[in-house]
């Protein structure tokens, strides 16, 4: 399953599920789509790498470091995952 084949709602749920595993105490039901995730959820660099890794494993998209800024918000992450094709570096 790759994100471009998912509906926007499914992609959004995938991102939220991934965040829930990393920040289990967060109230994600009320997470604004434009909130900066690392600030809002207090994610350190290891948390963010785990977020990117989990999204990569569930979509096949490589998400190079240069693209990290596109994933800084929930809305941004959903748009990015729906736009990018799975990458060649997928193991």
């Amino acid at each position: 399953m790759t994100a471009p084949n998912m509906t926007a709602a499914e992609t959004r749920q995938l991102v939220l599920d991934t965040l829930a595993a990393i920040a289990p105490e967060a109230d994600l039901a009320h997470l604004p789509g434009d909130a900066v995730l690392r600030e809002e959820l207090d994610l350190d660099s290891m948390d963010f790498l785990n977020f990117v890794t989990a999204l990569h494993e569930r979509t096949g998209i490589d998400i190079p470091e240069a693209d990290y800024p596109s994933l800084s918000t929930l809305d941004g992450a959903v748009a990015y995952l729906r736009r990018e094709p799975p990458g060649p570096a997928t193991a």
Binding site: S45, T53, L55, H56, E65, A89, A91
Partner: peptide, 14 residues
């Protein structure tokens, strides 16, 4: 080092 690696293989400065 990280450019051509998938996220599970990436390294942080720490």
């Amino acid at each position: 080092r990280n450019r051509d690696r998938a996220p599970p293989e990436r390294v942080l400065p720490a």
